[in-house]
Simulated scan of single mutants.
Amino acid sequence: MKTDHNKNIETLKELIDSKDLIPNVSVDCTIFGFHDNILKVLLLKYHDLNLYSLPGGFVFIDEDLREAADRVLYERTHLKGLFLEQFHTFGRLDRTHNNVHKTLINNKGLDVPKDHWILQRFITVGYCSLIDFTMANTFPDAFNESCAWFEVNKLPQMAFDHDRVIAEGLEYLRKNIDTQVAASNLLPEKFTMKDLQSLYETILGEKFRRNNFQRKILSTNSLERMEKLFDGSANKAPYLYKFIKK
């Protein structure tokens, strides 16, 4: 335990002293996870604090914003090549008023100048992803004791303005649900209209009449109808569909 504590202090010192990071800029990823009609978001819990945050990090001088977001996503899930979109920049003056970095530094007994960039205002760029949360392992870092999935309507106490980031990310996901669902690989290559409707209802938080949903989805011309699914039951066999690649 003492070894982990010392390692955390050394990691924090390296971060504070680093000359390879862009000051006052970060990326935060709202990694939404779906499975069995439940929508969750990936959160980290800080050591010795009853506060949670989104997976995020600072940006290296020689790194694109998108590269930084991809790196954060990989560090927390060990998944590569996932669909990831930038959805908003967060720059309110008071967004880092409850500065967790300052609390962590004080708890570790480190001496940091008051004008150090890590203690100042931060602007963060939000990225959004949608995955099957059962397919991803989760990995905390040196500053966090856990990395776990939480239902989007049952969030714990969040650090910074990350409750707002999650709300904005969810709104973006809902407004762009057709693109997000098609690119997320949440469904098998061939799926029924019922499968797709359940996914939409979970993300949007509302129920649809079957006929109305099917009419709306088919009007987008994003699906190709395949063969029927015969499962041996007495019910009418539903058609299978797949997304048309664009």
Score class of each variant (00 low, 15 high):
238 P>F: 00
161 D>S: 10
159 A>G: 05
151 E>I: 08
178 D>W: 05
237 A>Y: 09
60 F>V: 13
229 L>H: 03
9 I>S: 07
18 S>W: 04
130 L>N: 09
177 I>Y: 07
222 S>C: 07
41 V>N: 00
135 M>A: 10
117 W>Y: 13
67 E>Y: 06
210 R>E: 06
196 L>H: 01
130 L>W: 00
153 N>D: 13
201 E>I: 04
14 E>M: 08
65 L>T: 01
60 F>T: 15
228 K>V: 11
23 P>M: 10
199 L>M: 05
32 F>K: 07
111 D>G: 01
15 L>D: 12
172 Y>V: 03
32 F>R: 00
177 I>H: 04
56 G>Q: 00
151 E>N: 09
191 F>Q: 06
236 K>M: 13
45 K>G: 06
60 F>H: 06
181 V>T: 11
179 T>G: 11
18 S>V: 02
58 F>E: 13
207 K>A: 07
163 D>L: 11
110 L>A: 06
171 E>S: 12
45 K>S: 02
52 Y>T: 05
73 L>W: 01
67 E>A: 10
80 K>N: 15
62 D>V: 04
48 D>A: 08
132 D>Y: 00
97 H>C: 14
56 G>D: 10
17 D>E: 15
196 L>Q: 02
163 D>V: 13
53 S>P: 04
88 H>P: 03
79 L>V: 04
34 F>W: 09
140 P>Q: 02
221 N>I: 01
18 S>N: 08
15 L>V: 08
39 L>F: 02
73 L>Y: 07
193 M>F: 06
112 V>G: 04
215 R>A: 10
195 D>T: 11
9 I>L: 07
96 T>L: 10
12 L>V: 12
175 K>S: 12
211 N>W: 05
88 H>S: 14
21 L>D: 02
230 F>W: 15
74 Y>M: 07
83 F>L: 15
124 T>S: 15
213 F>C: 05
225 R>C: 03
59 V>G: 03
1 M>C: 11
161 D>R: 09
215 R>E: 04
210 R>N: 03
140 P>T: 08
186 L>P: 08
144 N>Y: 05
180 Q>T: 11
148 A>W: 00
208 F>H: 10
37 N>H: 03
141 D>I: 02
40 K>H: 01
33 G>A: 03
51 L>D: 02
18 S>L: 03
242 K>A: 02
109 G>Y: 01
13 K>C: 06
246 K>E: 14
25 V>S: 12
157 Q>F: 06
126 G>V: 06
85 E>T: 11
176 N>H: 11
151 E>M: 05
194 K>M: 14
224 E>G: 11
109 G>C: 04
71 R>S: 08
168 E>V: 14
171 E>N: 14
184 S>T: 05
137 N>D: 13
8 N>L: 15
193 M>H: 00
226 M>R: 12
6 N>E: 15
110 L>R: 07
162 H>A: 12
26 S>F: 07
238 P>Y: 02
191 F>K: 03
196 L>V: 11
97 H>V: 15
230 F>M: 15
